[in-house]
């Protein structure tokens, strides 16, 4: 059994999923908005790296790609907040309304990207609708300098993943800004009464959400042999699964769930495929089966908790009384 490739895939995908799932949970727990435009951040993050690669004649440094992708994703997040989420919030719209409005935004961004790709295709004669992998020159240079022969995407994902997660940890746990964000997440009214500028912090949360998620896109283009405008959609399904397992509230459980799903998708499936002869066509069904089982057997009690029906009989007995 060729376990090495499956391990590599699990490892890189863990980082891609972590970088895109954590912001999803972060945005939900802070703003209570179920953002259906989340795949846009991943896709635009990836395409910023692709456009840079094309315009810099395939000499893109990782830090430049990260800077541009982070800024683009962040600006899209803030734009969504200002144009859609804040007006809806001010009008007292329900979470479902936010969800469908952001789905409308997804349509707009997705097809705007198709237009950009087609215009650039006509102007530059290159196909952007399915683009080969992008190598980062600065990482290549460092690898050559220190004689590191591992595939570039392992170095890129480790470096970028660790930097982002550590920065996020420091921001949320060691700074006043992070305390304020957590305060907003716990109780918006109380936080506002304590003098926390809710609107500014919401905008900042969306900027961070968009920016960090976009970084998963630049990891994607480095790893995958082909990137299409649909890429965000493929990744976001796992993001939602991980965020739900994390109860839409715990960043740590979301990160662990992301890694666990990456492992299930790769290692577990390789084992089942090789030893039991299962076809890869049922891979997604296995992942969804795992998610379904986790949610049903051990429902997370997070932001979306609700009535734990497993206690119903006990409650019923108590109510009925002797």
């Amino acid at each position: 059994m060729e376990i090495a490739r499956a391990l590599i895939c699990s490892y890189v995908f863990s980082w891609i999923y972590i970088l895109s799932s954590i912001p999803l949970t972060l945005s939900y727990r802070t703003t209570k908005v179920f953002n259906f435009a989340h795949p846009v951040f991943i896709t635009y993050g990836a395409y910023v790296a692709i456009f840079l690669n094309e315009f810099l004649n395939k000499n893109t440094p990782l830090f430049i790609a990260a800077l541009f992708s982070f800024t683009t994703g962040g600006l899209i997040g803030v734009l969504n907040y200002l144009l859609i989420i804040r007006p809806l919030h001010q009008r007292g719209a329900s979470p479902n309304v936010h969800m469908i409005a952001t789905m409308g935004a997804w349509f707009v961004y997705q097809y705007a990207l198709y237009i950009i790709c087609q215009v650039l295709m006509k102007l530059r004669g290159a196909s952007f609708l399915s683009y080969p992998s992008v190598e980062y020159v600065d990482i290549s240079y460092i690898q050559r300098a220190i004689g590191l022969n591992t595939p570039q995407y392992i170095v890129t994902s480790t470096t970028l993943g660790l930097v982002v997660i550590l920065s996020l940890y420091v921001l949320l746990n060691k700074t006043m800004l992070g305390f304020a964000m957590r305060g907003i997440a716990d109780n918006q009214i109380l936080a506002t009464l304590c003098g926390i500028p809710r609107d500014k912090l919401m905008a900042l949360t969306w900027f961070l959400t968009g920016g960090i998620t976009a970084l998963s896109g630049i990891l994607w283009v480095n790893f995958s042999g082909s990137t299409t405008p649909e890429i965000g959609l493929h990744v976001v399904v796992i993001n939602f699964a991980a965020a739900f397992i994390g109860g839409l509230s715990s960043l740590l459980v979301t990160a662990l769930a992301s890694a666990a799903l990456a492992l299930t998708e790769n290692i577990v499936f390789l084992f089942l495929s090789y030893h039991l002869g299962l076809q890869p066509t049922i891979r997604l069904a296995i992942v969804f089966g795992v998610v379904f089982t986790i949610l049903v057997i051990r429902p997370p009690l997070g932001a979306g908790g609700g009535l734990p029906y497993r206690f119903r009989t006990r409650i019923g007995r108590k109510v009925a009384g002797p």
């Binding site: 059994m1 060729e2 376990i3 090495a4 490739r5 499956a6 590599i8 895939c9 995908f13 790893f223 995958s224 649909e230 890429i231 493929h234 990744v235 796992i238 998708e265 790769n266 499936f269 390789l270 495929s273 090789y274 076809q279 890869p280 066509t281 891979r283 997604l284």
Partner: peptide, 23 residues
């Protein structure tokens, strides 16, 4: 015979499965 689904994010594990059987 190994059949993989269209529209996936990545096919690395499918390639690993193929390589396992090829070996």
């Amino acid at each position: 015979e190994i059949v993989y689904s269209p529209g996936q994010a990545d096919y690395g594990t499918d390639v690993a499965t193929l390589a396992s059987f090829a070996r």
